[in-house]
Structure formats: C-alpha cells, structure tokens
Design a binder for these strands. Sequence first.
DNA 1: TCATTTATGAAACTCTGTTGCAATAGTAAA
DNA 2: TTTACTATTGCAACAGAGTTTCATAAATGA
Lengths: 136, 136
Amino acid sequence: MEAPLILSNHDLRNTSARLAVLGIFQKYTYALSHSNIEKELQKDFDRVTIYRTIHSFLDKGIVHKVMDDSESAKYALCVDECSSDHHHDNHVHFKCSKCGNSECLNNIQIPLTNLPSGYIATESNLLIEGVCKACS
Amino acid sequence: MEAPLILSNHDLRNTSARLAVLGIFQKYTYALSHSNIEKELQKDFDRVTIYRTIHSFLDKGIVHKVMDDSESAKYALCVDECSSDHHHDNHVHFKCSKCGNSECLNNIQIPLTNLPSGYIATESNLLIEGVCKACS
DNA sequence: TCATTTATGAAACTCTGTTGCAATAGTAAA
DNA sequence: TTTACTATTGCAACAGAGTTTCATAAATGA
Ligand SMILES: [Mn+2]
Ligand SMILES: [Mn+2]
Ligand SMILES: [Zn+2]
Ligand SMILES: [Zn+2]
C-alpha cells in the first residue's frame, strides 16, 4: 500500500518525517532499530522526532516490536490489519547469527505450550536463532 | 550448592562481590537486572563491579540471560550444568503482567518449530506473557 | 610470606530513550 | 484561499544502561 494512505488509514497526519520513516520500513525485509533508521534517512530529522514517529507507528498498529537479544529495540511492519486496539503478530521471529538481521516469519505460527497449573498465557513470543536463507 | 563452591567449580575466584551477587540470585526465583541486584546488595559495590560480575557469571555458565520486553537485561541462575562452552537453557520464560517478574519454567521444553527451507535453527527462546501462579 | 594474576573502584565516556517547551506545519472548515 | 485549531517538530536538557581505561587492592598458589 502507498505510504500516505497507510498513514491516513491509521489516523496519522501525513508529515515528511513519517513518510520518510515508513519508506525505510517498506524498503527492508528485516526489523530496524532507531539507529538503523536514523542512518538510513537522507534528510536529517531530529533524533526525538524519529523516536516519536516509531512510537506513533507502534501505537497505531503500523509496526510491531521485534524481540531480539540485542541491546536496542527493533521494529518491523505489521502485515495484517493491526490497529491501536490490537496487534496480530503471533508469528515467529528469526535472528540470523551471520548477518545479524531479525526477520518476521509471518507464515509460521507460535505453537501453543502447556503451562503448569496456575499460569495463564495472554501473549507469546518466539525467537529462533540460527542461519537465515540468504546466509545459508 | 554452596556459593563458594559454585564459583570455584566455574573457575572464578572467591571474592566478596561475587559471593554477594550470587547470594542474591539464589534468593530470588525470578530473573534479576543489574539495578535489581544493585538495590538488593547490602554493601556498596561499584556499579561497574556488578556489571563485570554478571558478565563473568554469564560467561562461565552460572547465569543465563532472560529475554523480556523490558528495557534492561535480566539474568537468572542456570539449573543444569552449564559451562563457558554451552548453556542448557532450552526452557520457557514466563513474564507476569501483574507482578512484572520473569521466571524460568525449567520443566517446560520449547517445542520444535518447522522452519521454511533454507533456515537453520541453532537456538530458540520462548517468552510467554500472562499471569503467574502467585498472582492468579 | 611473596610473587603473580585477577578483580575492584573511580572517572569519564557512549548509546538509548524521555520530557518540556516554543516554533512550525497539517488539516478541515469558513 | 485564508483562517483557526491542533498535532508535530526541533532543541535543549535530562536519566539510565552499559563500557573502557587505568591505578590500586585483593585472591591464589608456590
Ligand atoms: Mn514480526
Ligand atoms: Mn531461564
Ligand atoms: Zn543472515
Ligand atoms: Zn505475577
């Protein structure tokens, strides 16, 4: 979908910072951190603006957080129709130990796990590490 | 096992900082961050010493990193015989959204997942969020 | 006890992320 | 198109996590 339409569909104003950041997310197939995005941007937006842009995308369901054992948070585009109310990101994340990239395996569901009695699951998050298709 | 023995078994010198930090890990059933440990310590050790202590425990296989969507890294004692060479921590981690604690469910194995061709898994990490036994 | 090696404390630093506030830009209605 | 309103931006200042360097202190084994 076109970036300006994505923004208005998610009740966000069409600003140049948001269009630029969204364009970068669309360009890459793996999860990006704040610093990845900052380096990739042509025009210099303020660091804080980039943080706020990521937050608004997260809040409106344009991106989701990708867990990773790295120090800084990473984010990737949501594929399904996500909204402020609900994220549909029950897929597996794969981190390649060669290239370091984390990607969403959108077609692979996280298996249900039998928990001990007394534990109630509401969300789950599976990160698999290894070697990705491009690196193997 | 006694703390001094654990240290020498893992080729670490018996220092007061390490004994104190190890004692704190043994006291809690959930994963701890650097700042959790710092607050819990009676004697004031330097922040850097605590960081270095955690690193040496991680390196020698006394603790393992516990993934969590929180900002700072958390660590918990290894149960099996872990070493510098290999961590045996293929268990599930459970984060309670009420108390905020992350614990190791050492008896629950992470299920194997069918990856697309070209992907090779070497490690996996499953974080389940919900309500823990104590809070439910 | 002594020599050697490893650990610690202190200071300075980097990187990530947040907050408050004044200036600016987007939007929808006139 | 112009206006008015509100959301967004840039800037500065801040807080927290984690690292590096180096001189001093403590642990270990001889
Ligand atoms: Mn994803
Ligand atoms: Mn664990
Ligand atoms: Zn790769
Ligand atoms: Zn709980």
